[in-house]
Measured scan of single mutants.
Amino acid sequence: TGYYDVLGVKPDASDNELKKAYRKMALKFHPDKNPDGAEQFKQISQAYEVLSDEKKRQIYDQ
Rank of each mutant, 00 (worst) to 15 (best):
K20P: 00
A47C: 04
P11H: 08
F29W: 08
K28R: 09
M25L: 15
P31Y: 06
G37D: 10
E17M: 06
D36H: 11
G8N: 05
G8D: 05
G37R: 07
D32K: 10
S52F: 06
E49G: 06
E17I: 06
E49M: 08
G37K: 09
A47I: 06
Q58H: 10
R23N: 11
D5V: 09
K42P: 06
H30W: 06
M25C: 13
A26S: 10
D53P: 00
K10Y: 07
Q40C: 15
R57G: 02
E54V: 14
L18N: 01
A47Y: 02
K20Q: 14
H30D: 10
F29A: 03
A38C: 11
L51T: 04
N16H: 14
K56S: 11
A38V: 08
D61Q: 04
E54N: 12
L18H: 02
Y48P: 01
K28D: 05
V6W: 07
D5K: 11
D53F: 07
K56R: 13
P35L: 06
A38S: 08
Y3L: 13
Y60S: 03
R23P: 01
K42M: 09
M25R: 04
S45K: 15
Q43D: 03
E54R: 15
A26F: 15
A26L: 15
A13K: 00
K56M: 10
V9D: 01
F41A: 01
Y48A: 02
S14I: 03
Q46K: 13
G37Y: 15
T1L: 15
R23F: 12
K56T: 11
A21S: 01
K20Y: 09
Q58L: 12
T1W: 15
V6R: 06
D5R: 11
D32W: 09
G8A: 06
Y60T: 02
S14F: 05
P35C: 09
R57D: 01
Q40W: 13
K24Q: 10
G8M: 06
P35I: 06
N34M: 07
I44H: 02
V50M: 06
K56C: 13
D53C: 11
R57E: 02
G37T: 11
D12K: 04
Y4D: 04
A13H: 00
A47N: 00
Q62I: 09
D32L: 12
S45A: 12
D12S: 10
V50W: 07
Y4K: 00
Q43F: 12
L18Y: 01
E49S: 11
H30E: 03
H30L: 07
R23C: 15
D15F: 15
K55L: 08
Q62T: 09
K42G: 04
G37S: 10
K33W: 11
G2H: 14
A13G: 02
K24R: 13
T1R: 14
V9Q: 00
K10E: 07
Y4L: 03
V9E: 00
E39Q: 09
Q40A: 10
L27N: 12
K24I: 12
K20G: 06
Y60E: 02
Y48I: 02
F41S: 02
S52T: 08
D15P: 15
D12R: 03
Q62H: 11
K10L: 11
D12E: 06
D12L: 05
P31N: 10
R23M: 15
P35D: 04
V9C: 09
K10P: 11
A21R: 01
A26P: 00
Y60G: 03
F41P: 00
D5W: 11
E49T: 09
Y22R: 01
L51A: 01
D53W: 05
Q40T: 09
E54M: 13
G8K: 06
I59L: 12
V6K: 03
K33T: 14
Q62W: 08
K42Q: 08
Y22M: 06
A38M: 09
K20N: 12
S14Y: 00
V9N: 00
K20H: 10
K10A: 12
L18S: 02
G2Y: 15
M25H: 04
V9T: 04
D12G: 12
K24V: 08
K20V: 14
D61Y: 06
L7S: 00
K28C: 12
V9L: 08
F29P: 00
D12H: 08
L18I: 15
K28S: 06
N34V: 07
Q40R: 13
M25G: 05
R23G: 07
F29S: 03
Q62P: 04
S14M: 03
D53S: 07
A38H: 09
D61M: 06
I44M: 00
K56N: 07
L7F: 03
R57F: 03
K28W: 06
K33G: 07
P11L: 06
L18R: 00
Q46L: 14
I59W: 11
N16Y: 14
M25T: 02
A47L: 00
V6F: 04
I44L: 07
K42V: 07
V50A: 07
R57T: 02
Y22L: 05
L7W: 02
Q58A: 13
Q40M: 15
V50P: 01
Q43C: 14
K33D: 06
K55H: 11
E54H: 15
Y3M: 04
L27D: 13
A26T: 08
E39L: 10
H30R: 09
D15K: 14
D32S: 12
G37H: 14
D12Y: 09
K24W: 07
D12N: 11
L51G: 02
